[in-house]
Design a protein around this nucleic acid. Sequence first.
RNA 1: CGGGGCGUAGCGCAGCCUGGUAGCGCACUCGGUUCGGGACCGAGGAGUCGGAGGUUCAAAUCCUCUCGCCCCGACCA
Length: 575
Amino acid sequence: MLFSRALIPTTKEAPADATNASHILLARAGYIRKVGAGIYDYLPLGYRVLRKIEGIVRAEMDRAGALEILMPALLPGEYFKETGRWDVYGPTLFRIKDRKGGDYHLGPTHEEIVTDIARREIRSYRELPKSLYQIQVKFRDEPRPRGGLLRCREFLMKDAYSFDADEEGARASYETMRKAYVSIFDRMGLRYRMVQADSGAIGGSTSAEFQVLVDSGEDAIVACGVCDYAANVEVATVKAKHDGAAAPTSEPVARVHTPGHGSIDEVTAFLGVPRTAMLKSLLYVAGEAVVMAVVRGDHDVNEVRLARTLGVDEVFLATEADVEKATGAKVGFAGPVGFKGRVVVDRAASLVGAGVTGANETDHHLKNVRFGRDFEGEVADIRLAATGDGCPSCEGGTLTSYRGIEAGHIFILGTRYSQAMGATYIDEKQQQRTLVMGCYGIGVSRLVATAIEQHHDDNGIAWPMSVAPYQVHLVTIGREESVLRAARELHDGLEAEGIEVLWDDRDERPGVKFKDADLIGVPLRATVGAKGLAGGNVEVKPRSEPDPKNAELVPVAGAVKVLADRVRAALQTGG
RNA sequence: CGGGGCGUAGCGCAGCCUGGUAGCGCACUCGGUUCGGGACCGAGGAGUCGGAGGUUCAAAUCCUCUCGCCCCGACCA
């Protein structure tokens, strides 16, 4: 491809609304343009990358035996009404009325629609198992689209669904998909971790997320340094230790005046006690009830685990007014002693020997507070795991925190949708049984941005080979006949080898071309100029090498082979 | 949903407080000089000042309403 004939509108400055590295670079390098909040054009380079990722995903899905289909993006409301999600999904669903006033919506996910296919077309156990997938645009009216392609309102997703005769079959399908996902992320050259995850609103039992490790990621995960335990902090447990817990005190509870000192920091400073002696008491609204969660002062509440413990879908931090009503004191002075209501105590907090906590009276705290003597409550693991915590699944392992971007999520759904929609089959004994389902998503368009978050530097993008829009960026310096001829031969030779070449043939100064090449991020750069050509060479430099002086001199005659071999080698090793 | 902010040329911004000729940088066009890491000189083109209404002799600027967008938080297969 000739740069002069392409549409690659690079800019020096990024749009003011771009804050993530990937968003800034995608915009500056001319991959995408914003059309509306969370809605983007894919310009030629962006679309090439999207299709590369799509291609890898498709190949691995096919290899795993899944069958590609395409379901509508525009959906009649009846399907979501059938499973109750029309009401449950809330404002995130893009709802539409047709001219006759009928309810429609844009598909945010397709469990109902695929289950409808299954109930109509799958009759017998002989047809099982079956996995169907599609690569389709999805729509979610996100409360806050952000990060360019990281969180869009319209985005491209691969979603797959498995149908099995029983749980055991579903587990096998899940395992097949897990392996396919590993292949996909390996081929994309990403550093990632598969972690235990919350199944969330979609339901289901077993689930795992594929988290691409990026410091700027939205999700927090913890992983053990010894065994293979890794989990989203939402569901991570920790091994309770007695660290920082003093011996149980025999002193009686004492009321202390702490005027205006409501926060953990203020109270520890004012009373001169360590954070580990604080019993942090937070009020949550769970359904109709107001519940108190007690964790140690140096810990944070894990709201997902708290909700699971309480047996509700989700909990919300109580408002100031709720807190004052429930405790009779201003925020910052709540405590479990004498609290009238359900109290959940984190295991670590239950071991604090002489705790300091709110007195349920404004400007007062209590000290020498002990669980079991001074207050009661259910003990559960309800705190967020953090670096340094003990691994829950092995002896001696320690957890480390990472940030990640959720790029894939696999679930065993069970019969939630098949049951609700009557998707059944006839088994060997002529018995009608309910299909057992799994679902498996990959954020294809999100991966475009995710790959950049992990592969860029100050000058621009540095694509892994497998997803790069072109594989070789050919830069010509000057317009001498000899230069153009050598470049033409290199360009044509590479294309004949099936290598994707972008030839910057523009009448621009070298600096401009080099800056654009770094920005665009094609993994291999080949420079043809009079200087190198005088010695019969072209200069080859990988994008990952920052210093142009380290470019390698390759004889013109062998340059096609050298470059083609490098491209193929990179594709072999993943990235 | 709570808090904060922004809409002026394709992009980044100034001008608004204190009403009176719409400006700067980049990009773009033309001419010339340059040419291995975002050149220089000269000359140009390009803007319903987000929209509607109001105040005024006069509105980018003041007032009211409205639409869009961004940031932090909440939320999020």
